[in-house]
Design a protein around this nucleic acid. Sequence first.
RNA 1: GGAGAAGUGGCAGAGUGGUCGAAUGCACUGGUCUUGAAAACCAGCGUACUGAAAGGUACCGGGGGUUCGAAUCCCUCCUUCUCCGCCA
Length: 424
Amino acid sequence: MLEIQRIRNNKEAIIAGLDKRNFNVQSILEEVLSVDEKWRLKKTNLESIIAEMNKISREIGILFGQGKKEEGNKIKLQITALKTKESVLKNEVNELHNKLVKLMYQIPNIPDELVKKGNGELDNEKIEEIGKTPKFGFKPLSHWEISEKFSLIDFELGVKITGSGFPVYVGQGAKLQRALINFFLEEGEKNGYIEYIPPLLVNESSGYGTGQLPDKEGQMYYLEKDDLYLIPTAEVPLTNIYRNVILPNDDFSIKIMGFTPCFRREAGSYGKDVRGLNRLHQFDKVEIVRIEHPSNSDKALNEMINHIKELLNQLGLQYRVLRLCGGDLGFTASITYDFEVYSVAQDKWLEVSSVSRFDTFQSTRLKLRFKNADNKSEYCHTLNGSALALPRILAALLENNQTTNSIKIPKVLHKFTGFSEIVL
RNA sequence: GGAGAAGUGGCAGAGUGGUCGAAUGCACUGGUCUUGAAAACCAGCGUACUGAAAGGUACCGGGGGUUCGAAUCCCUCCUUCUCCGCCA
């Protein structure tokens, strides 16, 4: 969430920034400021009453210590009036604070200067497009047709075992999947990321820490019996490693990654969007996360972008990079670049990665800080990105590398798959 | 799952109702001494909110309660350890 100081001091800039999201924040901000002021006033008031009570209590202690019981009991009466005042004020302060937090949780992150105002997908800026559209001498099949033809993925079996959106990878399909995971992890390692295998279920605090809660509650699977959520992305457990952490100095750059399955309810999705591997309830992903000094977060973002481009280059996929407009930007991000690969058979761009900088939006919730040169704590910047999400990469690989009787496997994967093509 | 014990500052470890934000040791930082280092000695050494500052407030696993007053008593949850049961 935004720092309250920032709201106090930069109201106009925040309004202008959020206008790019078409988010009219003016009335919320005004309410925040007025609640904040009332809250601080009442709190000061309350604290001075408590201070008075503490003082009297201490005196009572001294009197009792000296055996002056009667005098002590006499003073006790002074406190009764203060106590009533205290409990009333305490309720007011709590109420105001809850109200304040609730309001603050409604305010999304301020978009970066580079982010353009826009309504949705159509207003995203294309930054670059790399690679060529493959040519076929025949009508290319969709990946779900290929999966069936070569027995790589069994969607119906998934329906039988669980339900739609839970595909079963079989034989060489499974191995290809595993190869991609290994390839992504190995590239991450080359780029200095430390690998974690985190829990796939997280508690409520973790959900709040990275911002999935409260605004994306419906998107996550929830286990009521144990009060736990299935992770929608490894971002949640990975970033929460650093919840409530104060890094000891200002010289740090934390690079971590993890492969996990991801679970998303995707309520409301339907039709051709969910066909095949396009949108799943369970999918695999390698996620990279960085914790950075504010002055280094832009550099980190660029490194991440280059890292992802390199992955796509090595896989030989045609792709484009988009900078999301304000309207399409996620709640917690200040800037996001989406990577989309082109699927010939579907004539469609498929999102395979999303790299975001959150500035201090997550770290304020996480209470993730570092000690600066003056030994004061400051909030870190957090960033994350998919490197990469598997299903759509697999879809594009199958579709773009098909011949009439085989699938060619990109060279970089051979050492992981043990085969260079899949044949009928 | 059942029975028991325990959770205190970076670590170790006192404190079982009153001036305790918390003894002591170690670690760490600064200083004295020394050619330098070690040792010794002296001093400092948690976080957050609020305030111009002085100060105030909160925090002894989390939450709630009793009390004029809680690290200390009560309730509840979490975690760790020991024993039993079950088990990949």
